[in-house]
Amino acid sequence: MTAYLLKRLIIAVLTLVLASMVVFAVMEILPGDPARLMLGLNASADQVEMLRDQMGLNAPLVLRYLHWAGGLLSLDFGRSYTYSVPVIDLVRERIAVSLPLALIALALSTVIAIPVGVFSASRQGRAGDTLVMGAAQLGVAVPNFWFALMLIYLFAVWLRLVPAGGFPGWGAGIWPALKSLILPAVALALPQAAILARVARSALIEVLNEDYIRTARAKGLPHRAVLWRHALRNAMIPVLTILGLQFAFLLAGTIIIENVFYLPGLGRLIFQAITQRDLIVVESIVMLLVAAVILINLLVDFSYAIVDPRLRGRQ
């Protein structure tokens, strides 16, 4: 198992390094001089040159990359051009909204999808299955931001149960803060749950046709135990794979959904940064999200080893 885990770890680190080179290269070819941007149009050429020296912009390309990448490792992302504060401070403030939102949505989607998948698989071809899978088929086709608008219309405008948008901050107390994350989380989670439920169902149906399931039934295990303990565990690999992929979609979805609900998260920050051409902020957030996706996929790879004992023995 160590060999397997080590290989996945090396691949993840390699991907991360390559990704950082891509992001760095993209920002390198961008037009515009950060030093001039910071000093404004009236600065003299000498002043700009001095600041460029100070910011290390005149150093050779490789050195600049190493300096930037080294900074990332120590969570020093540089200073925002427009806010004049360290980027990490901006990120820390915003991540307190985005991360809980993504995690609540991920948890919600899993909690809905797995039981639905199990329900559907155990009634394969019957009315309940057809109905639930029809709903899932519809759910897959719904764009989360449109679903969000409909939820706002129903629950915030009509029923007035939750706020239509905005975020009071965690300082306002857990409940008011959570309350304003409910609709965004549901909007993110339901379309993802539809995909996950379909995957869980087809993986389970595959497993339920295996010989050892018949054996488990033959030795008199109750239906429930066969389904939840034996079948579900063996159907987890495809489910985990999709779950890992979904995290990437959830992060991207968070960026869009935050704009629907006016939540002050990373997504709002990145769009503000784009319009203000605050590229170091854009660069940092992209890098952060890419790192998160790579990390989650590494965790999924690790969890395979936990779920599938065969991988533990493999060299």
């Binding site: 390699l14 992929l245 979609f249």
Partner: peptide
């Protein structure tokens, strides 16, 4: 396969954001 891993690490929205930034 490694290049695949690399591209998969960039959700389409992030690529779009970077491309738009340029």
């Amino acid at each position: 396969m490694r290049v695949n891993d690399l591209i998969f690490a960039f959700p389409a929205l992030l690529s779009a954001i970077m491309i738009t930034a340029i």
